[in-house]
Write a protein that binds this DNA or RNA. Structure first.
Length: 569
DNA sequence: GCCGTTTTCGGCCCGACTGTTTTCAGTCG
């Protein structure tokens, strides 16, 4: 998919236009970019199939943006962007320096000819910035710090890996005696895959004491901002945390505002205006009269909407659905009955079968599948046919030992270069659940890697495709697989696609899940555990499924054991 | 440049904090 690539160009156009003081167009380009990012289908495919017309049907994309997309797909260039770059020849990275917005970038370019982060750093170190009117020594100092931050921390955090830190921080604020209530908001509350910073909302009668307490916490590396109602700090681990303190009577409105997403809020505020209301973090108002504020649900209801779950507040159709009372009833962690993907010491796991079983029992799982790697993945000491048959025997014994849970035999086999499994079908047939994954040839072209996976789905023994796109967040891109074709084939062959819960994988992505849900493709949520502690990753997979609008009925492992097995291919 | 429970033209979310000023512009979320 080239969606992110093209979205980035429109974000850049928006920024460059803003530097030129162009009104409103930046907003339009950013909306177009967001819309493209949210597509579940490759934009190049949409264009291939339906031409300009189909591009214009995408929300926030009109004839002009559609033409630019066409131009870029055909020529690899956008004249408009090239022109803008000539007019404002600054490096894109300048836009990512905190405290620098379009106005200051323009000023710095006009006054000092600053085009790059390096130029900026030199000018600041030489003390040239403080002499510019409306800037000053303080700004200069902040710019130097922001450059340092940009160089060392220009990354996002994988939510699943810092969730525990977040929980701990919230606990400490709760125990401070200055708070009545503390809530995580922002992208962490919406359960995005990664977060850029952490937003916390607190209700307090003594906001200045709370903010003092907050800014003096042990792991605060630096206080970036401190006011009466909000404060921003940088933690030792590099995470930026915003704390906003409000009175109880605004609580619901503040939650709504602070959870976002920004785009969701903008749409909601527009809806409010259309109904002659005004919406802010202090409430929903008609004139000066408060219509709703203490309760988040009241705000939505007062606007004629059903309450919208946090995970789908991305302005991607949820407001329309809430207006029509047609929101999905999203799958929940408590719906999950089994886990279909876990490894043991036999291959690259780090715990024994018994340890994994006991941990799964503690989490209330009713059934689990051991899916150790198979022989083609030599590095993991993958099992061959003989070892798999032995494992089946071992699992039979385990089922006698543990009565609270059913242990199923399985494997995560390798889909070979030709699309065949690396294990004999006669053996696969004896396993309860077979996951097929691509572990090699990540760089193969789209046609080849798509064909491989489709062929694997045609194998009657392969029930589930593991981590279908192979991406690893912040490590590697997904392979060039054509998910449209994969989903068609999944539907046709009744193969399930995995939502891998591993924080760094979360594969499928939310937009793909939504597409699978629309097509009624079967899904499973699995942990891919390599350690007992990983079994708890299930919650991240469920969050991901929720972000993809999945309901209980879409997820096979919400079914009781007998129905689960019956519904596999 | 997009879009329509206000609309095919005229709008386009709203408020806190910072650093510079001394009433505000810029940035951020």
């Amino acid at each position: 998919m080239r969606n992110e690539e093209i979205a980035r160009l429109f974000y850049l156009i928006a920024d460059l236009l803003e530097i030129q003081n162009v009104q409103f167009k930046p907003i339009a380009y950013r909306r177009a970019a967001q819309s493209i990012e949210g597509l579940s289908e490759g934009i190049e495919l949409i264009y291939e199939k339906g031409g300009l017309k189909s591009l214009e049907e995408i929300p926030a994309i009109g004839v002009n943006v559609a033409l630019k997309i066409e131009e870029y797909l055909k020529t690899g260039k956008m004249k408009h962007l090239e022109e803008l770059k000539k007019q404002v020849p600054i490096d894109e990275s300048l836009l990512h320096i905190g405290g620098l917005g379009p106005k200051r970038i323009k000023l710095l370019y006009n006054e000092l000819g600053i085009k790059t982060v390096d130029d900026l750093e030199k000018a600041a170190k030489a003390g040239k910035i403080k002499n510019i009117r409306t800037l000053g020594a303080g700004v200069e100092e902040n710019i130097l710090e922001a450059i340092q931050f940009f160089k060392s921390h220009s990354r996002r955090f994988i939510l699943g890996y810092i969730q525990k830190d977040i929980d701990l921080l919230v606990e400490r604020l709760k125990k401070s005696n200055f708070t009545e209530r503390v809530e995580v908001c922002g992208s962490a509350r919406r359960k995005k895959e990664t977060i850029g910073d952490l937003d916390i909302l607190a209700i307090s009668k003594n906001s200045s004491k709370l903010i003092d307490f907050f800014t003096k916490l042990n792991d605060v590396q630096k206080v970036l901002g401190k006011g009466l109602k909000k404060s921003t700090v940088l933690l030792q681990n590099g995470l930026q945390v915003d704390l906003r303190v409000l009175d109880k009577k605004y609580f619901g409105a503040a939650m709504q505002y602070f959870i976002g997403s920004k785009e969701h809020n903008v749409s909601l505020r527009k809806l409010a205006i259309s109904k002659k209301y005004k919406l802010s973090e202090y409430g929903l108002f008609k004139g000066k009269k408060v219509i709703a504020g203490e309760n988040e649900k009241d705000i939505y209801n007062s606007l004629g909407l059903d309450f919208i779950p946090y995970e789908i507040r991305e302005n991607s159709g949820e407001i329309e659905a809430a207006l029509k009372h047609k929101l999905p009833k999203l799958v929940e962690l408590k719906d999950i009955q089994g886990d279909c993907h876990m490894h043991t010491l036999q291959t690259d796991g780090t715990c024994t079968m018994e340890q994994m079983i006991e941990a799964a029992i503690k989490l209330g799982r009713k059934y689990i599948v051991f899916t150790d790697h198979t022989k083609a993945l030599g590095i993991t000491n993958g099992l061959d046919e003989k070892a798999l048959l032995q494992q089946i025997k071992k699992i039979e014994k385990m089922n006698k030992k543990y009565s609270e849970i059913t242990i199923l035999s399985g494997a995560e086999l390798n889909i070979l270069d030709d699309g065949n499994p690396d294990i004999d079908n006669k053996v696969l047939k004896q396993l309860d659940v077979v996951v097929g994954s691509v572990h090699t040839g990540f760089k193969q072209d789209k046609e080849k890697i798509t064909r491989r996976t489709m062929k694997a789905m045609e194998n009657e023994n392969i029930d589930i495709i593991g981590h279908p796109t192979g991406r690893k967040i912040q490590v590697r891109e997904p392979f060039a697989i054509d998910l449209n074709k994969v989903m068609e084939k999944a539907k046709e062959t009744e193969t399930a696609l995995e939502i891998n819960s591993y924080p760094q994988r979360l594969d499928l992505k939310d937009v793909h899940i939504r597409e699978a849900v629309n097509r009624n493709v079967k899904l499973v949520i699995s942990t891919d555990s390599h350690h007992t502690s990983h079994l708890e990753f299930m919650k991240f997979g469920v969050d991901q499924a929720r972000r993809g609008w999945a309901e209980k009925k879409n997820i096979l492992n919400t079914l009781p054991l007998d129905k689960f097995l019956k519904n596999l291919k």
